[in-house]
Protein backbone atom coordinates (compact mmCIF):
# COMPACT_ATOMS: atom_id res chain seq x y z
CA UNK A 1 0.00 0.00 0.00
CA UNK A 2 1.21 3.47 -0.83
CA UNK A 3 0.68 5.26 2.47
CA UNK A 4 0.95 8.74 1.07
CA UNK A 5 -1.80 8.08 -1.43
CA UNK A 6 -4.38 7.99 1.36
CA UNK A 7 -3.74 11.66 1.96
CA UNK A 8 -3.67 12.85 -1.58
CA UNK A 9 -5.59 15.89 -2.63
CA UNK A 10 -8.38 14.40 -4.67
CA UNK A 11 -11.20 15.90 -6.63
CA UNK A 12 -14.32 14.36 -5.13
CA UNK A 13 -17.49 13.81 -7.08
CA UNK A 14 -20.28 14.97 -4.80
CA UNK A 15 -22.78 15.37 -7.60
CA UNK A 16 -23.87 11.79 -8.06
CA UNK A 17 -23.34 12.34 -11.75
CA UNK A 18 -22.04 9.30 -13.59
CA UNK A 19 -18.90 9.48 -15.60
CA UNK A 20 -18.86 8.47 -19.24
CA UNK A 21 -15.52 6.85 -19.98
CA UNK A 22 -13.48 8.74 -22.51
CA UNK A 23 -12.72 5.42 -24.19
CA UNK A 24 -16.45 4.92 -24.78
CA UNK A 25 -16.64 7.98 -27.02
CA UNK A 26 -15.11 8.28 -30.45
CA UNK A 27 -15.31 11.39 -32.59
CA UNK A 28 -14.10 11.89 -36.14
CA UNK A 29 -13.91 15.34 -37.68
CA UNK A 30 -14.45 15.27 -41.43
CA UNK A 31 -15.23 17.51 -44.39
CA UNK A 32 -18.18 17.29 -46.73
CA UNK A 33 -18.09 17.82 -50.50
CA UNK A 34 -18.12 21.58 -49.96
CA UNK A 35 -15.15 21.44 -47.56
CA UNK A 36 -17.40 22.20 -44.60
CA UNK A 37 -16.45 20.44 -41.39
CA UNK A 38 -18.78 18.00 -39.70
CA UNK A 39 -18.35 15.26 -37.13
CA UNK A 40 -19.32 11.66 -36.58
CA UNK A 41 -19.57 10.28 -33.08
CA UNK A 42 -20.07 6.88 -31.53
CA UNK A 43 -20.99 6.68 -27.85
CA UNK A 44 -21.35 3.60 -25.70
CA UNK A 45 -23.58 4.25 -22.68
CA UNK A 46 -24.56 0.64 -22.05
CA UNK A 47 -22.65 0.12 -18.80
CA UNK A 48 -24.07 3.20 -17.06
CA UNK A 49 -27.64 2.02 -16.42
CA UNK A 50 -29.16 5.32 -17.42
CA UNK A 51 -32.93 5.88 -17.72
CA UNK A 52 -34.08 5.10 -21.22
CA UNK A 53 -35.88 8.45 -21.57
CA UNK A 54 -32.86 10.57 -20.60
CA UNK A 55 -31.74 12.92 -23.36
CA UNK A 56 -28.32 12.78 -25.00
CA UNK A 57 -26.62 15.98 -26.11
CA UNK A 58 -23.32 16.55 -27.84
CA UNK A 59 -21.69 19.95 -27.51
CA UNK A 60 -18.82 21.17 -29.67
CA UNK A 61 -16.85 24.18 -28.48
CA UNK A 62 -13.72 26.19 -28.91
CA UNK A 63 -13.19 29.54 -27.19
CA UNK A 64 -16.24 31.68 -27.99
CA UNK A 65 -17.72 29.13 -30.36
CA UNK A 66 -20.34 26.69 -29.09
CA UNK A 67 -22.79 24.34 -30.77
CA UNK A 68 -25.19 21.82 -29.36
CA UNK A 69 -26.62 18.75 -31.05
CA UNK A 70 -29.64 16.74 -29.91
CA UNK A 71 -28.99 13.00 -30.14
CA UNK A 72 -32.42 11.85 -28.94
CA UNK A 73 -32.71 9.67 -25.87
CA UNK A 74 -30.71 6.86 -24.36
CA UNK A 75 -33.03 4.23 -25.81
CA UNK A 76 -33.92 6.00 -29.03
CA UNK A 77 -30.76 7.60 -30.23
CA UNK A 78 -31.21 9.79 -33.30
CA UNK A 79 -28.33 11.22 -35.26
CA UNK A 80 -28.92 14.81 -36.43
CA UNK A 81 -28.61 15.08 -40.19
CA UNK A 82 -26.81 18.42 -39.90
CA UNK A 83 -23.65 17.89 -37.89
CA UNK A 84 -21.67 20.70 -39.45
CA UNK A 85 -19.35 22.70 -37.21
CA UNK A 86 -20.24 26.36 -37.46
CA UNK A 87 -19.09 29.40 -35.48
CA UNK A 88 -15.74 27.78 -34.75
CA UNK A 89 -12.68 28.89 -36.66
CA UNK A 90 -11.61 26.42 -39.32
CA UNK A 91 -8.07 26.54 -37.97
CA UNK A 92 -9.17 25.40 -34.52
CA UNK A 93 -9.83 21.89 -33.32
CA UNK A 94 -13.08 21.86 -31.36
CA UNK A 95 -13.47 19.83 -28.22
CA UNK A 96 -16.63 17.90 -27.47
CA UNK A 97 -18.79 17.32 -24.43
CA UNK A 98 -21.32 14.51 -24.07
CA UNK A 99 -24.18 15.00 -21.62
CA UNK A 100 -27.03 12.73 -20.61
CA UNK A 101 -29.81 14.84 -19.12
CA UNK A 102 -32.90 13.96 -17.14
CA UNK A 103 -35.63 16.27 -18.40
CA UNK A 104 -38.51 14.82 -16.42
CA UNK A 105 -38.38 17.73 -13.97
CA UNK A 106 -38.57 21.43 -14.81
CA UNK A 107 -34.79 21.88 -14.73
CA UNK A 108 -32.70 19.44 -16.72
CA UNK A 109 -30.39 17.50 -14.42
CA UNK A 110 -27.14 16.01 -15.72
CA UNK A 111 -27.03 12.27 -15.11
CA UNK A 112 -23.78 11.47 -16.89
CA UNK A 113 -21.14 13.42 -18.76
CA UNK A 114 -17.69 13.51 -20.22
CA UNK A 115 -15.94 16.71 -21.24
CA UNK A 116 -12.96 17.82 -23.33
CA UNK A 117 -13.13 14.95 -25.80
CA UNK A 118 -10.79 15.43 -28.76
CA UNK A 119 -11.50 14.04 -32.21
CA UNK A 120 -9.61 10.83 -32.92
CA UNK A 121 -9.38 11.59 -36.63
CA UNK A 122 -9.26 14.92 -38.38
CA UNK A 123 -9.76 14.81 -42.14
CA UNK A 124 -9.12 11.06 -41.95
CA UNK A 125 -5.74 11.58 -40.29
CA UNK A 126 -5.46 10.01 -36.84
CA UNK A 127 -4.65 12.44 -34.04
CA UNK A 128 -3.56 10.60 -30.97
CA UNK A 129 -6.48 11.31 -28.68
CA UNK A 130 -4.27 10.43 -25.73
CA UNK A 131 -1.85 13.22 -26.58
CA UNK A 132 -0.92 15.16 -23.49
CA UNK A 133 0.11 18.31 -25.30
CA UNK A 134 -1.46 19.75 -28.40
CA UNK A 135 0.22 22.07 -30.83
CA UNK A 136 -1.39 25.12 -32.37
CA UNK A 137 0.05 27.76 -34.66
CA UNK A 138 -0.63 31.37 -33.93
CA UNK A 139 0.71 34.86 -34.39
CA UNK A 140 2.86 35.22 -31.26
CA UNK A 141 4.52 38.50 -32.19
CA UNK A 142 8.22 38.12 -31.42
CA UNK A 143 7.84 35.05 -29.25
CA UNK A 144 8.84 31.64 -30.61
CA UNK A 145 6.60 29.56 -28.41
CA UNK A 146 4.13 29.94 -25.61
CA UNK A 147 2.44 27.44 -23.35
CA UNK A 148 -1.31 27.89 -22.94
CA UNK A 149 -2.58 26.20 -19.79
CA UNK A 150 -5.73 28.23 -19.45
CA UNK A 151 -7.77 26.49 -22.09
CA UNK A 152 -9.33 23.06 -21.93
CA UNK A 153 -6.15 21.10 -22.58
CA UNK A 154 -2.45 22.10 -22.55
CA UNK A 155 -1.45 23.64 -25.84
CA UNK A 156 2.02 24.49 -27.04
CA UNK A 157 1.58 27.50 -29.28
CA UNK A 158 4.18 28.02 -31.97
CA UNK A 159 4.71 31.19 -33.91
CA UNK A 160 3.15 30.65 -37.31
CA UNK A 161 5.44 33.27 -38.82
CA UNK A 162 8.56 31.13 -38.40
CA UNK A 163 9.47 29.13 -41.45
CA UNK A 164 9.22 25.38 -40.88
CA UNK A 165 8.42 25.83 -37.20
CA UNK A 166 6.50 22.57 -37.25
CA UNK A 167 9.61 20.69 -38.35
CA UNK A 168 11.81 22.55 -35.85
CA UNK A 169 9.49 21.77 -32.95
CA UNK A 170 9.25 18.09 -33.78
CA UNK A 171 12.80 17.23 -34.73
CA UNK A 172 15.33 19.97 -34.00
CA UNK A 173 17.32 18.73 -31.01
CA UNK A 174 18.10 22.24 -29.81
CA UNK A 175 14.42 23.08 -29.67
CA UNK A 176 13.52 19.75 -28.07
CA UNK A 177 16.17 19.97 -25.37
CA UNK A 178 15.64 23.64 -24.53
CA UNK A 179 11.87 23.94 -24.77
CA UNK A 180 10.26 20.67 -23.67
CA UNK A 181 11.83 20.44 -20.20
CA UNK A 182 10.55 23.96 -19.53
CA UNK A 183 7.12 23.00 -20.85
CA UNK A 184 7.15 20.00 -18.49
CA UNK A 185 8.19 22.20 -15.56
CA UNK A 186 5.49 24.80 -16.21
CA UNK A 187 2.79 22.16 -16.50
CA UNK A 188 3.78 20.44 -13.27
CA UNK A 189 3.91 23.78 -11.46
CA UNK A 190 0.43 24.62 -12.61
CA UNK A 191 -0.96 21.26 -11.54
CA UNK A 192 0.79 20.83 -8.21
CA UNK A 193 1.55 24.32 -6.91
CA UNK A 194 -1.25 26.43 -8.32
CA UNK A 195 -4.09 23.93 -8.63
CA UNK A 196 -2.98 21.83 -5.64
CA UNK A 197 -3.69 18.61 -7.44
CA UNK A 198 -1.42 15.72 -6.53
CA UNK A 199 -3.29 12.51 -7.29
CA UNK A 200 -2.26 10.89 -10.57
CA UNK A 201 -5.15 8.41 -10.44
CA UNK A 202 -7.87 10.91 -9.69
CA UNK A 203 -9.30 11.38 -13.13
CA UNK A 204 -8.56 11.01 -16.81
CA UNK A 205 -8.38 14.76 -17.28
CA UNK A 206 -5.05 16.27 -18.30
CA UNK A 207 -3.64 17.08 -14.82
CA UNK A 208 -3.87 13.45 -13.74
CA UNK A 209 -2.45 12.23 -17.05
CA UNK A 210 0.55 14.54 -16.72
CA UNK A 211 1.09 13.47 -13.11
CA UNK A 212 1.01 9.84 -14.26
CA UNK A 213 3.70 10.64 -16.82
CA UNK A 214 5.87 12.28 -14.16
CA UNK A 215 5.35 9.48 -11.66
CA UNK A 216 6.35 6.83 -14.21
CA UNK A 217 9.71 8.48 -14.83
CA UNK A 218 12.69 6.62 -13.32
CA UNK A 219 13.17 7.40 -9.65
CA UNK A 220 9.92 9.29 -9.21
CA UNK A 221 7.24 8.56 -6.61
CA UNK A 222 3.95 10.43 -6.18
CA UNK A 223 4.28 14.16 -5.43
CA UNK A 224 4.35 15.44 -1.84
CA UNK A 225 0.99 16.67 -0.58
CA UNK A 226 1.51 19.87 1.30
CA UNK A 227 4.91 21.50 1.65
CA UNK A 228 5.49 23.92 -1.20
CA UNK A 229 9.31 23.67 -1.00
CA UNK A 230 9.04 19.87 -1.14
CA UNK A 231 6.73 20.15 -4.13
CA UNK A 232 9.12 22.54 -5.90
CA UNK A 233 11.94 20.13 -5.22
CA UNK A 234 9.85 17.19 -6.52
CA UNK A 235 9.11 19.11 -9.72
CA UNK A 236 12.79 19.79 -10.30
CA UNK A 237 13.55 16.10 -9.73
CA UNK A 238 10.86 15.22 -12.28
CA UNK A 239 12.33 17.62 -14.83
CA UNK A 240 15.80 16.14 -14.24
CA UNK A 241 14.43 12.63 -14.69
CA UNK A 242 12.54 13.74 -17.80
CA UNK A 243 15.76 15.15 -19.29
CA UNK A 244 17.69 12.00 -18.43
CA UNK A 245 14.99 9.70 -19.78
CA UNK A 246 14.82 11.51 -23.09
CA UNK A 247 18.61 12.10 -23.37
CA UNK A 248 18.23 15.86 -23.54
CA UNK A 249 21.86 16.65 -22.71
CA UNK A 250 23.12 14.26 -25.36
CA UNK A 251 20.69 15.66 -27.90
CA UNK A 252 21.82 19.20 -27.18
CA UNK A 253 25.52 18.33 -27.37
CA UNK A 254 24.98 16.50 -30.63
CA UNK A 255 23.21 19.47 -32.14
CA UNK A 256 26.10 21.73 -31.14
CA UNK A 257 28.60 19.38 -32.74
CA UNK A 258 26.55 19.41 -35.94
CA UNK A 259 26.88 23.17 -36.00
CA UNK A 260 30.70 23.03 -35.90
Amino acid sequence: MNFSKDFMIRKFNYTGRKKIKRSNVRIDLLRDGNERRFFNISIDLDDLELPSNAHVYIEAYHRSGYQRFDYGTVSERKVPSDRRIKNISDAAIPLFRVKVVDKTSSHGRILAAVDKVRPENIDNIPTSSQSLLYVEYDDLGNKIWQLDLDGDWPVLKLNQNIEEISLVASSDNRFLSLVYPEVFRQILRRIIIEDEHTDPQCDDDWPSLWLQLACFLPGMATPPQTSKPDQQSWIEDAVESFCANYNMLEKFNQSLQELQ
Binding site: Y57, E59, K99, V101, K103, S106, H107, G108, I110
Partner: peptide, 17 residues
Protein backbone atom coordinates in the same frame (compact mmCIF):
# COMPACT_ATOMS: atom_id res chain seq x y z
CA UNK B 1 -23.27 23.64 -13.72
CA UNK B 2 -22.07 20.33 -12.29
CA UNK B 3 -25.64 19.14 -11.76
CA UNK B 4 -27.83 21.01 -14.19
CA UNK B 5 -27.91 21.36 -17.93
CA UNK B 6 -27.69 25.13 -17.80
CA UNK B 7 -27.24 25.50 -21.55
CA UNK B 8 -30.81 24.38 -22.13
CA UNK B 9 -32.28 26.91 -19.70
CA UNK B 10 -33.70 30.37 -20.18
CA UNK B 11 -32.69 33.20 -17.90
CA UNK B 12 -35.91 32.74 -15.91
CA UNK B 13 -35.14 29.06 -15.37
CA UNK B 14 -31.61 29.85 -14.20
CA UNK B 15 -33.02 32.39 -11.71
CA UNK B 16 -35.37 29.72 -10.32
CA UNK B 17 -32.36 27.62 -9.34
Amino acid sequence: DLNYDLYSMSGEEVLEL
